[in-house]
Design a binder for these strands. Structure first.
Lengths: 189, 189
DNA sequence: CAGTACAGACCAAATGGTCGGCTACTACTG
DNA sequence: CAGTAGTAGCCGACCATTTGGTCTGTACTG
């Protein structure tokens, strides 16, 4: 029954991307006007696809979380069958997205900005639980997973603090974390 | 010349604390009205101390950064003269503030929320540089510092994702990081 | 008296959201 | 295949409310 499925989906994507960009730049307080203009539609057009501001931001949060998960899944090396392959992909995706300055959606920062929107916290919590169980099945020692993933998250925060001004430390962190997924350094039994 | 210095300082603190609370809860988009009400003053009263919204948020960011630094300095164990004493204090302060749910100011999350405010990025970057040099003088291997501090930062982000629902993992992370500051596990040369 | 901490009324601008209308495509009808 | 009714995408005008900020006044203090 949905007759113009194609266009609808495309507009939604356009708006979502525009929202991601503007929220990343100006925080979750951006006005619908700004988002709509960035997306190249009218405010009414935007509101046709997302019934309210909160609905839009909620959808954005969901989209961020889903996209990130998909990216990590796609980044898993098919030839890699050793323990920690998922954690390796996780680290890679986080640092790759940090690499290019112009990255549209900075997963962590964006979701952090959105965390005050009504339904978003629940989404983030559910997502966190999924990652936790996925990591448990990845074969690495839990302590190791804890340190590595938290450090990756922290590094992603650091771009905000350092303003992306420290690419060498970033690269070093990436290498350290990847090596830790390969069992180097037995800081835990 | 400032006749009522005492009251001025106190009101500023009250407003700053109120701002910290509301921004943490509702994001950097909070209205002056809400902050003023939370602080128990009129909006005009608030604007008497902070000439504009941006000035207030800027002052808030500065205050957050300074308070955190002071807390870490105060948390350094005077009896601890081994390498990594500053990093240990850093970890302790971060996790202690995460401990109590009702913590007024969640340093990292708050500054993240404020990062879109005009002058704040510069403050955060300067602060990051100071920490870096302080850590360099702390005697631990740079790689170790990198991993530990980033992981601590990431853990602080995690409260947002997990909704503080995982205190056991938090405690575990804290212990792991502290033990890592004591040179256990030589994951790096 | 001078100056400062505040409050209340007020204002222009911006905001989220509604409404009616136009267009273009789909699907049915003959 | 032509015509047409229906419907979804989208826009511009519009509205009530909220917003950041100013201005005027007042109480208090040194």
């Amino acid at each position: 029954m949905p007759p113009r499925e194609r266009d609808t989906a495309r507009t939604r994507r356009t708006v979502l991307d525009a929202a991601a960009r503007t929220v990343a730049k100006q925080g979750a307080g951006v006005s619908l006007d700004v988002i709509a203009r960035e997306a190249g539609v009218s405010k009414s057009g935007l509101l046709h696809h997302f019934r309210s501001r909160d609905q839009l931001l909620l959808a954005l949060a969901r989209d961020q979380v889903d996209t990130f998960a998909a990216e990590v899944r796609a980044a898993v090396d098919p030839a890699d069958h050793a323990a920690g392959r998922l954690v390796r992909a996780y680290v890679k995706v986080i640092f790759d997205s940090l690499g290019d300055e112009t990255m549209i959606s900075e997963h962590l920062l964006l979701t952090a900005a959105l965390s005050t929107v009504p339904g978003v916290a629940e989404i983030l919590q559910a997502d966190a639980r999924e990652w936790e169980s996925a990591f448990t099945a990845d074969g690495l020692h839990p302590d190791r997973v804890l340190i590595i993933t938290k450090a990756a998250d922290g590094a992603s925060l650091a771009t905000l603090y350092e303003g992306g001004s420290n690419p060498v430390a970033l690269e070093r962190t990436r290498e350290l974390l990847l090596s830790m997924t390969r069992g180097e350094g037995s800081f835990t039994g």
